[in-house]
């Protein structure tokens, strides 16, 4: 039974993630006054990738890519998706989520750097430094919320925000939301912060050596990551949801918000990206924290 539930969670994450990517590409195309690909384009890309021949340099590359994908899918179990929650005891423990997500990035990093291509390793070193960049504002905002809700479980946070829009955290703690929103932009690797897979500078960064099946897995991992990160922010600030579709809708709104920024903004120089992340969002998060401590 658990296995079925597990597979159900995994597939919802992937499908919704791919759906968001497809619609997102359509949405960006429409911003650029182009017709844009059909919204199920992402599914086609994934099947095409899985049908292609693939290569790998050594067993660590395969193990790494698998670990990456497994890490992200594993984290989704810890996050409450609307009314569903996989574990009753550890329902959305924010500390576990944050550390389990690092398995994903560690796995991807290890697999990709096993390929021995300098472009991919530069990409990974940028990815990790950026991770430190966006973790600070995110953590400060989350700490504020933990103090307020007296527990580090997302489940309890969601239950505290139930009942009408007025007591959503986005209303009660607007600065925290702004900080997390900026951090989300970097988490998803969207345009101002897509220094990691910068196609023009380091030839699509980590994904240089990934082909066919490997690229497919990386694609699915990215989709699941979108689902996860938007899901976390929804639980934190938009008060979760009492039915699934409302949860997906809120996730989609957040994703579209970050896509709009992505479509219109150029790319940061790498040091400036980290410096920017440590100034603006961190300032907002600190203001929020001070407000919480003082009141």
């Amino acid at each position: 039974m658990i296995v079925l539930k597990f597979i159900g969670y995994g597939f919802t994450a992937i499908i919704i993630g791919l759906l968001f990517m497809g619609i997102g590409r359509k949405y960006t195309a429409r911003i650029q006054r182009r017709y844009g690909p059909p919204f199920w384009q992402a599914f086609i890309d994934v099947t095409k990738l899985f049908s292609k021949q693939s290569l790998s340099h050594n067993w660590i590359m395969d193990f790494g890519i698998l670990m990456g994908f497994a890490g992200i899918v594993g984290t989704i179990l810890f996050m409450p998706i609307g009314p569903w929650h996989f574990f009753s005891l550890m329902n959305g423990n924010i500390v576990i989520i944050m550390y389990f997500m690092t398995i994903g990035s560690l796995g991807m990093a290890m697999g990709v750097s096993a390929s021995g291509n300098p472009n991919s390793t530069i990409g990974i070193s940028r990815a990790l430094t950026l991770m430190v960049g966006y973790e600070i504002p995110f953590v400060i905002a989350v700490i504020g919320l933990i103090f307020v809700s007296k527990s580090s479980l997302l489940g309890t946070m969601v239950s505290l925000q139930s009942g009408g829009i007025m007591n959503w955290n986005i209303i009660k703690y607007p600065f925290g939301f702004i900080a997390v929103e900026m951090a989300l932009q970097a988490m998803l690797g969207e345009k101002p912060f897509d220094v990691i897979t910068a196609p023009s500078e380091i030839a699509s960064g980590p994904m240089v050596e990934l082909s066919g099946k490997m690229m497919g897995l990386a694609f699915l991992q990215h989709a699941a990551q979108i689902f996860l990160e938007t899901g976390i922010v929804v639980n934190l600030f938009l008060g979760g949801a009492n039915n699934i579709w409302e949860f997906f809708l809120k996730q989609f709104v957040l994703f579209i918000l970050s896509l709009t920024v992505n479509a219109i903004s150029p790319r940061f120089k790498f040091e400036d990206a980290v410096k920017w992340l440590w100034t603006w969002p961190t300032v907002f998060a600190l203001i929020q924290l001070l407000i919480i401590i003082l009141t």
Partner: peptide, 13 residues
């Protein structure tokens, strides 16, 4: 989760 990912790995050539 690792086995779930491994299942995907088995698809394709």
């Amino acid at each position: 989760a690792f086995f779930f990912a491994f299942a995907f790995y088995l698809i394709g050539k």
